[in-house]
């Protein structure tokens, strides 16, 4: 059955190449529905992160990298849009928590506005900080130390701060590049729980090495291998009954 609402994000024969000879991502086509969590899995070097970073035009920073095909955000091709516009609508959380070291927790949450040159009144600022820190379940832990540096927090708290920072810009899509790989199991559980709650406000695309994580949090999964999108479908179906031999080999630990 076709879904009624159009997909929020759509890859259409997306290719990414680092050099002329080798393609890191080959002709990926997939449609992602609004307010879902989609996991991108695959062995190291299969192009997961490369595909993710194409969505917020991170590759534009490096002149050697070419992105071809189309990536549609609400029907509009990202590749022909201004990077600044795209990145405002597509937030990103990195593998290592990277709060801005010179800014306080408070300023870190608001850094997106500062970097975009948007001025907020004091009440708007306070509201945004409270709303975002509450939505990442960090408010109760840090509301009395908002003026301390962001780097003063633990790794898991720092990562939640980075999520709050991305959410402050009210993005349509949130990209997460192995957001828990640098965290301990408890902090990981916190973030996974958080993602479940966040999917009501934002569509999440997450790269993960951890199959258990993909199974726990995502409704749909992509399996990539050597730059190709091998399989894309419901997470439950893919784990119980993968249609491709390579997916099966990866999921059963014979390859990876």
């Amino acid at each position: 059955m076709e879904s009624v609402t159009p997909p929020i994000l759509e890859f259409n024969k997306t290719c990414v190449s680092y050099t002329k000879q080798t393609m890191a991502v080959k002709y990926v086509s997939a449609a992602i529905d609004k307010n879902t969590i989609t996991a991108i899995m695959g062995p190291s070097g299969c192009g997961k992160s490369t595909l993710l970073r194409a969505v917020n035009l991170m590759h534009n920073l490096y002149p050697n990298i070419r992105v071809d095909g189309e990536i549609l955000l609400n029907g509009e091709n990202i590749l022909s849009m201004e990077p600044i516009d795209v990145r405002r609508r597509v937030g990103m959380v990195f593998q290592r928590p990277a709060p801005f070291p010179t800014m306080s927790i408070y300023d870190n949450v608001l850094s997106g506005y500062v970097l975009n040159g948007i001025r907020l009144s004091k009440t708007e600022k306070d509201e945004t900080v409270e709303r975002c820190l509450k939505s990442v379940a960090l408010w109760d832990e840090v509301n009395d130390v908002l003026n301390k540096k962001g780097t003063f927090l633990s790794g898991g708290q720092q990562q939640r701060l980075c999520i709050a920072r991305a959410l402050a810009m009210k993005p349509d899509v949130l990209l997460m590049d192995e957001p828990t790989s640098a965290l301990d199991p408890i902090a990981t559980a916190h973030i996974e729980e958080l993602m479940q709650e966040l999917q009501n406000e934002v569509t999440i695309l997450i790269v993960t090495h951890n199959m258990g994580q993909a199974m726990r949090i995502s409704s749909k999964s992509m399996f990539m291998y050597l730059g190709e999108l091998v399989e894309y479908g419901d997470t439950a179906t893919m784990f119980s009954n993968p249609s491709d031999e390579r997916t099966k080999a990866y999921l059963t630990g014979k390859m990876g």
């Binding site: 600044i84 990145r87 990195f94 290592r96 801005f100 850094s111 970097l115 980075c162």
Partner: peptide, 24 residues
């Protein structure tokens, strides 16, 4: 990652330089 995080929030290069990289 510092520069990328700044740019990923939609900042232009000059702002990311002034607000994130140079302070760091």
């Amino acid at each position: 990652s510092l520069k990328e995080a700044g740019l990923a929030l939609g900042g232009n290069r000059a702002r990311v330089m002034l607000k994130v990289q140079l302070p760091a």
